[in-house]
Design a protein around this nucleic acid. Sequence first.
DNA 1: TTGTAATTGCAAATGATTTGCAATTAATTA
DNA 2: TAATTAATTGCAAATCATTTGCAATTACAA
Lengths: 156, 156
Amino acid sequence: MKKPCHCAQHSHQKQELASLTTRLRREDRKITGPRAAILEILRQHSHPLTTKEIFAELPKGECDLVTIYRAMQLLEKLGMVKRFDFGDGAARFELVEEGDDGHHHHLICTQCAQVVEIEECFPPEIERRIAQQNGYRAVTHRLEFFGVCPDCQRLK
Amino acid sequence: MKKPCHCAQHSHQKQELASLTTRLRREDRKITGPRAAILEILRQHSHPLTTKEIFAELPKGECDLVTIYRAMQLLEKLGMVKRFDFGDGAARFELVEEGDDGHHHHLICTQCAQVVEIEECFPPEIERRIAQQNGYRAVTHRLEFFGVCPDCQRLK
DNA sequence: TTGTAATTGCAAATGATTTGCAATTAATTA
DNA sequence: TAATTAATTGCAAATCATTTGCAATTACAA
Ligand SMILES: [Mn+2]
Ligand SMILES: [Mn+2]
Ligand SMILES: [Zn+2]
Ligand SMILES: [Zn+2]
């Protein structure tokens, strides 16, 4: 049996798993094998995953693809994951910290699909102006960047 | 037979239609009934249209839905239309002026889907910084705004 | 342990888009 | 103007991601 590790990094992760299951139970949801496994996989990745990428990482037979689709719908509704759209027809999901809305953007390589998490956001003042000029309320945006990553430039 | 009209507006449209067919022929493409009809519909709209919106506007029996899908693929490849993704599963297309790449954005009402064409773009200097910091080249972006339009605010 | 609502698997349905293929046609060419 | 041919089209069927119906299973509160 492994000794439990209490370093900052791992205690953070443990914390997270507990808080995730708590969030589910708070909504009268059950912690099931498939859900725990899905959350675990999402926790191990810093970039958004497609439904079938999650499926592929799951020990074979752990659960049906449909179950993942249903889980992602639920988790999104509960605000536990954020859905992203890279424009290739498959939705991607990323875990969201409690209390956060998960809004952020990515830079995706058009050749190998490598993903970089982006800190920058569309300037709020410009967005406010756009909303105001058109009389729209509660305006937000979807934004993703595309380009050629360093590796793919080399292979040119 | 109707007399030809030479007012600014119509001559502009004629010009455009001619230039559109020219662009096609330049690539050894044929000007067919369906294509002319599709281009004509696109010319009459200032917002992007889905394939089935185009289909619906076409005189019934004018052409098959598949033909529109194929036409949009061709027109996109030739740079005559720009494809947009509002995240609802259906691609939208807008005519692009010759020599232009059609890059721009929209503000979409999340309740009634009303669309506003947006002039603003993501600040180039910030995009340049994002590209540089990550070693990416040829970086561009996809960006759409979402909010509640004036009409839908009233109906609240 | 029991009761019950939540969850799951499996098959089938959807909806958008693509593909195969034989018949049709626009645009040359003779 | 008629013959020639590559491009185009219609129709059916195939794909792909995602959703839905339903009966069997299960988490978990009492
Ligand atoms: Mn991310
Ligand atoms: Mn537009
Ligand atoms: Zn943003
Ligand atoms: Zn832009």
